[in-house]
Computed example of a mutant assay.
Amino acid sequence: MTRRDFHRLGSLALGGLIKLVVAIPAAAFLLSPLRKTGNAAEADSFENVTSLNQLKVGVPQSFGIIHDQVDAWVKYPQEPAGSVWLIRQPDGVEPPVIAFTAECPHLGCAINLAAEGKGFLCPCHTSAFDMEGKPLNPIPPRPMDRLDVELSKDPDPQVRVKFQRFRCLAEEKITLE
């Protein structure tokens, strides 16, 4: 082996080592969002929405959900994530509060309260739902998506909702997050 061959081989080895040292962290950085499975504590967390005394029996009320969100590498602190419809049930009826996501299961448009206040309406395609979230016409593929609700043990209980988003156009509820 000549001196020139030795230097050429050494340069190739050193260049390969430098490339490897740079490539491994770069690949780990680029692939890190794919390895994340999400924080199980966040996925199972309930959001405080309002107090039970703020809800009138049988009257739907809309509330925004605001919490931290993560999109790949970017963290968004306290961003609007969506909204929910809450309906307080009469005393003695279980569950005491029903929660629906305000996103239409057809195309994901925002569901509003119908003009007479006795149901819900999606303005994107005139789809209507009754107070139990059942569709009144065949346009949406499923009823409005119900969310889990729990009440705190306080004297004035807090209504807590497990906010989730679901896939549109599917006949069954499929969670996106």
Rank of each mutant, 00 (worst) to 15 (best):
F129P: 14
P157G: 11
Q54D: 12
V70P: 03
D145R: 06
L52M: 09
M144Q: 14
P77G: 06
N137S: 05
H7R: 12
N39T: 04
A40C: 02
V161D: 02
L169R: 12
Q78N: 13
W85A: 10
G108L: 08
R35E: 08
L107N: 08
G117L: 07
K162Y: 04
A27H: 06
N39K: 11
L9V: 07
R3I: 00
Q164M: 11
K19A: 14
K134P: 03
A110M: 04
L17G: 12
I65V: 03
I87Y: 15
F6E: 12
V97E: 05
A41G: 08
K56P: 01
M1I: 01
T37S: 15
V74D: 09
E171T: 10
A23K: 11
R88E: 03
P155R: 13
P95G: 10
G15D: 06
P96C: 08
D71L: 08
R35F: 02
P157Q: 04
A170G: 11
A102W: 05
G38I: 05
A81D: 08
G82W: 07
Q54A: 12
D156S: 08
F46T: 01
F100E: 06
Q61F: 01
E79C: 06
V70E: 14
K19T: 13
S45D: 06
D148W: 06
D130K: 00
L136K: 14
V70T: 15
V84K: 15
P155D: 14
L147A: 06
P157R: 00
T126N: 12
W85Y: 13
V93D: 09
Q89C: 01
D91I: 00
L30P: 12
E79M: 09
V49H: 05
L107A: 15
W73D: 03
D148Y: 08
G38E: 04
L169F: 09
P143I: 00
M144P: 13
F166I: 09
G58I: 06
R35L: 10
V22K: 14
L20H: 06
P95H: 07
C104G: 06
N53Q: 12
T50W: 04
A26T: 12
V70A: 12
P33N: 04
L86N: 05
S127P: 02
F46P: 01
A115M: 10
D130R: 01
L136Y: 05
Q54P: 01
V70G: 04
